[in-house]
Design a protein around this nucleic acid. Structure first.
Lengths: 215, 215
DNA sequence: CTCCGATTTGACCAAATAGTCAAGATTTTC
DNA sequence: GAAAATCTTGACTATTTGGTCAAATCGGAG
C-alpha cells in the first residue's frame, strides 16, 4: 500500500533532479509551518520563504495550498503508523508493548512537528485524513486490538479494553510533542537536561505497563 | 485570584443588561468557533453570525479579535484548573486520584470545546496563555506534585514521578475531547452508545490506578 | 555551443477579512 | 415623555492572501 491520500497528482510523472530537491524542501518547510499554525493559519508565503523560494515558484510545484497540505500528511502517515503495525502477536505482551511505547515516545520527541501536524488536523475534525482514519486506521486498530485482546484472554495481561489501551498509549506519548509548550512552561529548563527524555519515557512506561500487568 | 489574563479591559466597568447578554452570547459562540478552527482560522464574521449579531455589533463589545480570544480563554481557565486544585493531601491517595481522573474525564466529555481551545492554544506555542502557564499553572502543578510525592514517599503509591503522573492524566483525559474525530473514526457509532463514556473512563482509571498502586 | 523544455519571478488580480465610522434605532433615566 | 446614553448596522477602507501569467532565466541533451 503506497498511496493513502488522494493528493490530486499525476501518479507516474517522472521527476527531475531540481523537482526532487525543491519538492522535498517545500514539504520540510510546510511541515514546520503547518504544524504550528494549522492549515488555515499558515500562509503560502511563509512556507515559500522557509523553503527559500518565491511564492509563485512554490506554486509551480504545488498548484494549491491544499495540495501542499495533503502531500505533507501523505508523506508522514506511513511512518506514523509503522510502530503499531509492528506489534507482534507472537512476542511477549509486556515486552511488545514496552517496545511500542518506547518507540512512540522516541518518535514523538524526534519529530514533534509531525505529531503536531496530526494533532492540528484531527482537532479541526480531520477534514483531510478523516476517510483514511475511518478505513485504514480503523482496520489497523481493530486488528491490533484483537491481538491485545488475545493476550488478555490468555491471562498474560490484566483485563483491560484493548482499544482504550491503544488510545491511552497514543494520548500519553503524543502529549509530550503536542503540549510541549505547556510542559516546557511547567518544567522550565529541566526539559533540556540530558536525561529528561529517558525520565519521561520511564514514567510513562512504569504507569502503563504496571497498569496492565496481570495481577 | 480572579484575573488570570490581561484581557485589556477596564476592570470595574459595570455592565448593562444588554451587555451581559451579548457578551456571554459572544463568548459562547467564540468558544465553538475558535475551538475548531484555532485563532487564525476563525473569522470575526463566523463568530458574529453564530452569536446572532452583525460583525460591527460584535466589535462594539470586543474591539479586536484578540480581545475575544483572550476573554474566552480567561473565562475557562479557572474551571479548567479547579479539579487539580481539589486534590486533597489528607485524603486517600488512590481515591483522590480516582476522583480527579473521573472529574477530568467528565469535564472533557461535557466540554469538548474548552478542551480543544486549550489544545489549539498550546499547540500554537501558547502565545496568549504562555505566561499564565509559566506562573500560575507551574505553581499549582509543583504544589500538587509535592502532595503526590509525599504519598509516594510514605509508600501509599508506587514510586512514580508525580509531575509525569499529572501529565499522563491530562494527556489521557483530554485525548478523548481533543482527538474526538480520530476516536469517532475508529469506533464509529459505538461512541454514541449509552455506556460508552463510562467504559472509556473505566479503562483509563483501570490502567492508571493500577499503574500507581503500591506493589 | 545551441536549442528547447524546465524553472523562476515581478507584477498583478480577486476574494476574504479585520477593523472604522457616522447615522439611525432602541433603551434607560429622570 | 423627552433627553441622554446605549446599542446596532450599512457602507466603507486597508491589508492580507491565494492564485495567475507572461516574460525572463536556467540547465541539460545533442
Amino acid at each position: 500500500m503506497d498511496v493513502y491520500l488522494d493528493t490530486g497528482e499525476e501518479p507516474d510523472k517522472p521527476r527531475t533532479r531540481i523537482q526532487e530537491i525543491n519538492r522535498s524542501a517545500i514539504l520540510v518547510a510546510a511541515l514546520d509551518v503547518f504544524s504550528i499554525h494549522g492549515f488555515r493559519g499558515s500562509t503560502v508565503d511563509q512556507i515559500a520563504q522557509r523553503a527559500g523560494m518565491s511564492k509563485p515558484n512554490l506554486l509551480y510545484y504545488f498548484r494549491r495550498k491544499q495540495d501542499i497540505y495533503r502531500a505533507v500528511l501523505e508523506s508522514i502517515l506511513a511512518d506514523w503508523l509503522a510502530p503499531l503495525e509492528a506489534l507482534d502477536a507472537e512476542g511477549d505482551p509486556i515486552e511488545e508493548l514496552r517496545r511500542y511505547i518506547s518507540l512512540k515516545m522516541r518518535m514523538s520527541a524526534d519529530n514533534t512537528a509531525a505529531s503536531r501536524l496530526f494533532a492540528n488536523e484531527v482537532l479541526a475534525g480531520a477534514p483531510v485524513i478523516g476517510e483514511f482514519l475511518a478505513t485504514h486506521l480503523k482496520e489497523l486498530v481493530l486488528r491490533k486490538a484483537a491481538v491485545i485482546g488475545h493476550w488478555v484472554q490468555s491471562g498474560r495481561l490484566a483485563p483491560i479494553d484493548p482499544v482504550h489501551l491503544i488510545f491511552t498509549i497514543w494520548a500519553t506519548t503524543q502529549h509530550y510533542a503536542d503540549f510541549d509548550a505547556q510542559i516546557r512552561a511547567v518544567l522550565g529548563q529541566q526539559i533540556d537536561r540530558p536525561g529528561y527524555r529517558e525520565q519521561a519515557a520511564q514514567a510513562v512506561l512504569s504507569i502503563i505497563l504496571n497498569g496492565i500487568r496481570p495481577r
